[in-house]
Amino acid sequence: MEIRTASKLEKILKNGHMAVSSECGPPRSSDAKGIIEKAHLIKDHVDCINVTDNQTSVTRLCSLAACIHLKHEGLEPVLQMVVRDRNRIALQSDILGAASFGINNMLCLSGDHQSFGDHPSAQNVFDLDSIQLIQTSRYMRDEGKFLGGGDIEKPPNMFIGAAANPFADPFKIRVPRLAKKIAAGAEFIQTQCVYNLEKFEKWMEAVVERGLHEKVFIMPGITPMRSVAMAKYMAKSVPGMDVPKDVIARLSGVAKDKQADEGITIAVEAIERLKQIKGVAGFHIMAIEWEEKVPEIVERSGLYPRPIVD
């Protein structure tokens, strides 16, 4: 497969390795120390690190600046970009800015609605949607042009990703929606956290049936549960999250001080089972404010050591 960018993630995936990505959230501070430390906890066990963009609409140090900090540490960041807060002028400008620092990956997202965050009275932008952001970033890279038609002297050269949530409704368009993102230009997909393995398998079956797994690299999302309380919260209060009752029952069945260990084991077992599915190209391990557990999950899942690509 032709390597198009300088992205390490692209090289790993196109060389046929199972990729592992993870995720760090920037701090609510002008001091980037927190995210740099988190990234160092996981850097030897993952191929790249997503940096979230004001996740849940809570204002934080910006994703682009945090990516630059990680890049300066010699790490491989994935710039998450939501279309909630910036119009096409700002988005394109940030893409150029990111590329100018050698940030080689971006993930195009809608973003949570501002009503979930710390500024519910904010205006939202949504000049583009996430699919149109994928189109925009591919157009800038492949055609060397801005949306407005002007030429980009040195186009950004980034590996372009998107999210997919197989568990949101309506289920019947979840595969067509993936097809739309691929048609828009998505090259890799990181999914919503997978707990309902049967439903994910059903979705992947339909993905493979349409041959979509040959057009995009699909990385299921894995988030270990720290406690039964977290599982219940995610089941009840996180939109688009599917936490089956048996996961909650399994966590409830162990003593409180063992629930975190059980959560890790559930995550490892999920990876082992999902690895067997045709079309799964890697894993996106999101250990929310629990980054120190990523190495253990990666090692126990047989995904360590990470391949070396140049």
Partner: peptide
């Protein structure tokens, strides 16, 4: 969103 739904539709 002109190409929806987002991942929050339940």
């Amino acid at each position: 969103i002109l190409n929806g739904p987002c991942g929050g539709s339940t």
